[in-house]
Computed example of a mutant assay.
Amino acid sequence: MIVFDIETGPAPEETLRKFLPDLPAAQHPGDFDPSSVKLGNTKDQAKIDAKYRDAAAKHAEAVAKFEEDQKTAADDHWAKFIDKAALSPITGQVVAIGYYSANNGAFVHQDITQKSEREMITTFWSQFSKNEHSHRSMVGHNIFEFDLPFLVRRSWALDIAVPPNARKGRYWSDLFVDTLDYWNLGQRMNKPAANFDALAAFFKTAGKPEGTDGSQFYDMLTTDYDRAIAYLKSDVEQPAAWIDAMGITL
């Protein structure tokens, strides 16, 4: 069997800007209105002028704070959008695909620093067709809910042909094996929590490297390449051990 895993990242900024939701409008302080200054019974022009200056200064501070707050809000709005962008095939892209052969322990991968997203996805479907011919399973964790739908939708976006047998009606090809689907044992309601780290702890494998998760992969890929690839390698090696532990013969 071959275990695979995809890693995703945000789409290029010019694409993301098209989908960024509008930031809710805030109330601008407006122009300074001298008539809003409360003068009381003051007749002393010097005191009146001082009140106007004080009010104008406070208004200028409010305008400056408003503009600063709006910039902070816009930056936060963008950061939160970017943080979730990789999870959607509309605002995200495939940035790496790793493969692990349980037969010989070989690990290979492609990533966006070497190959385009189009090349990576085309290679994946080519691998599927080869495995289909050799009746060799393709295994992954949560691939029915995330990896495969993401790959198909990105294929649509890039006009890449998806093999007709990859999906049969409502179901994925029997070639695909999802460790999470096996773990659930057909349960649809009240399914036990079984994220990657939970299964790793249960089956006594290493789990995700401490302090890291998939949302950080793209940043790792661009700032600490070796660490990113080690992370990807771990993500495809461990499900192979879980399959063995569950006694599943593929």
Rank of each mutant, 00 (worst) to 15 (best):
V94S: 05
T205V: 01
F32W: 01
A62H: 08
R153I: 01
R118N: 10
F176P: 09
F144Y: 15
A50W: 05
D54T: 11
Q27Y: 00
G186Y: 00
M189A: 15
R227I: 05
E237P: 13
Q27S: 10
A56G: 02
Q70A: 14
S116Q: 05
L148R: 08
P89I: 05
A57Q: 13
F19C: 09
G186W: 01
S129R: 14
D76I: 08
D219K: 15
L151A: 07
A96N: 05
S88C: 13
I112R: 15
D44M: 00
S134K: 12
M120R: 08
W172F: 02
M189C: 13
H135E: 13
P24D: 02
H135D: 13
S116P: 05
K191Y: 03
A102V: 12
G247N: 04
A228E: 01
I6K: 03
V162T: 08
T205W: 03
I160R: 07
N131H: 11
D54K: 13
H109T: 07
M189V: 15
Y99N: 10
D76G: 03
G40N: 04
Q70T: 04
A230C: 09
G207H: 02
G9C: 01
L23Q: 00
Y100N: 13
W125C: 10
D44Y: 02
T123Q: 14
E68M: 05
K168V: 10
F128N: 09
H141S: 09
G207N: 01
E210P: 07
M120F: 08
A85V: 13
F128M: 10
I48K: 06
A228H: 09
S173Y: 01
A57L: 11
N195L: 04
N195H: 04
Q45T: 06
V236N: 13
L158D: 00
A60L: 14
D174T: 07
A57P: 06
A73D: 04
D178A: 00
L16F: 03
A79M: 09
E237L: 15
D33F: 01
G105P: 10
N142M: 10
F202S: 10
W242L: 08
D244T: 15
L199Y: 06
P164M: 06
D75Y: 02
G211R: 08
I2A: 05
V95A: 03
S101E: 11
N184D: 11
F4Y: 03
F196W: 04
T222N: 14
I248V: 15
M1P: 08
S234K: 07
A201R: 13
T8E: 09
S215D: 10
A73C: 11
R170H: 09
K130W: 10
I143R: 03
I82N: 11
F176T: 05
D83L: 08
V152T: 09
A161F: 04
A240H: 14
A74T: 11
A26G: 01
A245C: 11
D197F: 03
A46N: 12
A85L: 12
Q70R: 15
V236S: 12
A85Q: 11
S129F: 09
T42A: 01
